[in-house]
Design a binder for these strands. Structure first.
Lengths: 206, 206
DNA sequence: GTCTATAGAAAGATAGAC
DNA sequence: GTCTATCTTTCTATAGAC
């Protein structure tokens, strides 16, 4: 209301820092948001911080995505579209159980490049809207792809339990960083986890 | 600064709603906080809401606990001190694996009384301080008690994997409510989960 | 022992200049 | 296409009355 101009016709030139490429700006925001949501979760990551790390002003997030929630939905959809553990190659492998166990142990080691998809989910479940977005995407992709790759009865339940096992291990080993798992020998962990996954994916299991 | 009294000597009598029992007030806040943190996580639960549900003013939280963070730490310590699944009885049972699987499936069914401890943890991991509090308490209690109950080599790693399995299943079945698990037949789930837990707790496993 | 009132910071979203 | 400045709400924590 009592608006006051700081300086009339201020002689400050505005340097053109960016080529003003809408596509590049959108991508930069998306990448920054993915990292921020993986690190701090939906509620913990602020639009100001996401924008700053992308080198733009916070306003552009609403300009390009409509809201923080829509940005989050797009990050989740993007991330799940290019899976790291449950890839098409893994699912078509002759030994799905061993493949998943090996990839899981390798990728949850401390300091490793985080599994963005599960990390974003784990750190965002407290928010009901964010949880719903994650649940829908997981059911639509991971759950569907994995249960489709399993032979035998109760494929849906067995696939969901594999997802629970993967999420639980990432949670305890990387997100919470329980010492017994964070410091464990990777070879030992693989040896302990492989039979668990195999018990779920083996068709003999019913 | 420009403080204005609403009404001088307002004739509003203040009804004494509570017997002004410090112990009872403290307990009421603690119970309310436990429910709120289980439902919304550390960041999602506000001190105003916690106080309102306990029937007191928000100020008393700082009066009795010092800060929201200290209140959270006390909730976590209290909750983990009386475990629901990993009870002394369960751990001394002859068939730990089956006991855990049975209890887990029964207690994560949709709409069930939630497992407060894991629920609080799952919905609070996004906050670094809350995560640290949970990690410390889990290592000090669950991890220690469970690995102490396991015979054979690598008890610490196997115990931590049991915790990961329990957390993952609660997450997917109750917190995220993935349909395949939320709607699954409890008997089927128990049959699928029991061998997983047994593979981890059996001393033959190494 | 408990309250009302408020300070002070930070959040998401928006208006309008350039 | 992008900015600065601001609106509005909400948060934790505190001061001081009764």
């Amino acid at each position: 209301m009592t608006r006051v101009h700081k300086a009339v016709a201020a002689p400050v030139r505005r340097p053109v820092r960016r080529p003003r490429d809408a596509g590049a700006t959108r991508s930069a925001i998306l990448a920054s948001a993915r990292a921020a949501f993986a690190q701090a979760g939906y509620d913990g990551a602020g639009v100001r911080e996401i924008a700053a790390r992308a080198g733009v002003s916070a306003m552009l997030i609403n300009r390009y995505f409509g809201s923080k929630e829509k940005l989050f939905a797009e990050v989740v959809a993007d991330t799940i579209a290019s899976p790291v553990i449950l890839t098409p190659e893994t699912l078509q492998s002759g030994d799905i159980g061993a493949e998943i166990a090996r990839a899981l142990v390798a990728l949850t080691r401390p300091g490793a490049a985080p599994l963005d998809g599960f990390q974003v989910m784990l750190r965002s479940v407290a928010n009901p809207r964010a949880a719903a977005i994650n649940r829908d995407q997981i059911e639509r992709h991971h759950q569907k792809n994995l249960s489709g790759a399993l032979a035998g009865p109760h494929a849906a339940e067995r696939a969901a339990l594999v997802l629970a096992l993967v999420a639980g291990i990432q949670l305890m080993r990387q997100t919470l960083a329980i010492k017994a798992l964070a410091k464990a020998d990777p070879a030992l962990l693989t040896r302990l986890i492989t039979p668990l996954v195999e018990a779920l994916v083996a068709p003999s299991k019913a």
